[in-house]
Design a protein around this nucleic acid. Structure first.
Length: 283
DNA sequence: CCAACTACCTGTTAGC
DNA sequence: TGCTAACAGGTAGTTG
């Protein structure tokens, strides 16, 4: 479940192992991995050959390799995508969908079990952002992230505050894990409507989101199984620090009340029923 | 226009 | 033992 800290770990790995190299050969398997690249995988293969990787960039959960010529190879990990640095003689990983042979003799491989991830080539705008990523808001790791502007949007909506945290056009990078952790830290019920908060309360919530994701980044990210790994195939350790997410039935670290899990948008919300009381009127 | 719902996937686990 | 169902969930497209 790669969210902002996990994607940033991968970006750093690509900055180390891919930037400065040339793509000698690109290979795509099947039609799904490049489905967002309208011209298809053959076009992608042809256009990537010989391109210099200038840097590894990120906004929210979107990654891209900035190439010479003002284009970027967008990488979205989806639910289970991995970018792995491999030696060419290593056997193909299960669910290998793309491979890039680099000028240093190593390979970057895109491996994705659940196939929600994908790759595409796009033009970078004047700000260096790929066109398909333009609609994504800045994330809390971005120096230009404006928490007060994001809060101003959130307090005008009657949607539940967790839904707003997950809206990538307002603030990006937050997924189900860090939404639950941020709300636990801020002691806010996930379904309390945005317009029933003050702006400073939402700014504080976004500060907790930045804090918990920074703490996760320091531990290499959160991983529950082998699905989320860095470019060297290693998992992070932040799962040991989670207070709410996946902790149903376990005492709240703050008050001891068992954490509950509730169905939410075809998935789950985890929260402390005492520290995060349900708002008075809610549907 | 905005909000809410659903399809897209596969591996693991729980339940019968 | 073997089958089925539930679950994990980010994003884009559709529906209301």
């Amino acid at each position: 479940m790669p969210e902002l800290p996990e994607v940033e770990v991968v970006r750093r790995g690509l900055a180390t192992h891919a930037a400065g190299r040339v793509i000698e050969v690109a290979e795509f398997r099947g039609l799904r991995v490049a489905r967002r690249h309208e011209a298809g995988p053959e076009d992608l293969t042809a256009r990537l050959r010989g391109r210099l990787i200038e840097s590894a960039q990120r906004r929210g959960k979107y990654l891209w390799l900035a190439l010479d010529g003002g284009e970027g190879l967008i990488v979205h990990l989806g639910m289970s995508g991995q970018m792995l640095v491999s030696d060419p003689d290593q056997p193909d990983q299960r669910h290998l969908h793309a491979r890039f042979r680099l000028s240093d003799g190593r390979e970057i491989r895109f491996v994705d079990q659940r196939t929600f991830g994908g790759l595409a080539l796009a033009t970078l705008d004047w700000d260096g952002i790929p066109e398909p990523v333009r609609h994504i808001g800045r994330d809390p790791f971005d120096p230009k992230f404006d928490a007060r502007a994001a809060a101003a949007r959130m307090v005008t909506s009657s949607s539940g505050v967790k839904r707003l945290l997950l809206n990538q056009t307002i603030v990006s990078g937050i997924g189900n894990i860090y939404a639950d952790e941020s709300l636990w830290r801020a002691q806010i019920h996930p379904e309390k409507p945005g317009d029933r908060h003050t702006k400073p309360a939402i700014v504080r919530l976004l500060g907790h989101a930045a804090d918990v994701m920074n703490a996760a980044l320091e531990e290499g990210g959160t991983s529950f199984d082998a699905l989320y790994v860095n470019v060297n195939g290693q998992s992070g350790y932040f799962d040991r620090r989670l207070a709410a997410y996946g902790q149903q039935g376990i005492p709240c670290p703050r008050c001891g009340t068992p954490i509950v899990r509730e169905s939410f948008m075809n998935r789950s919300s985890h929260f402390c029923p005492r520290c995060q009381p349900k708002p008075r009127t809610s549907s």
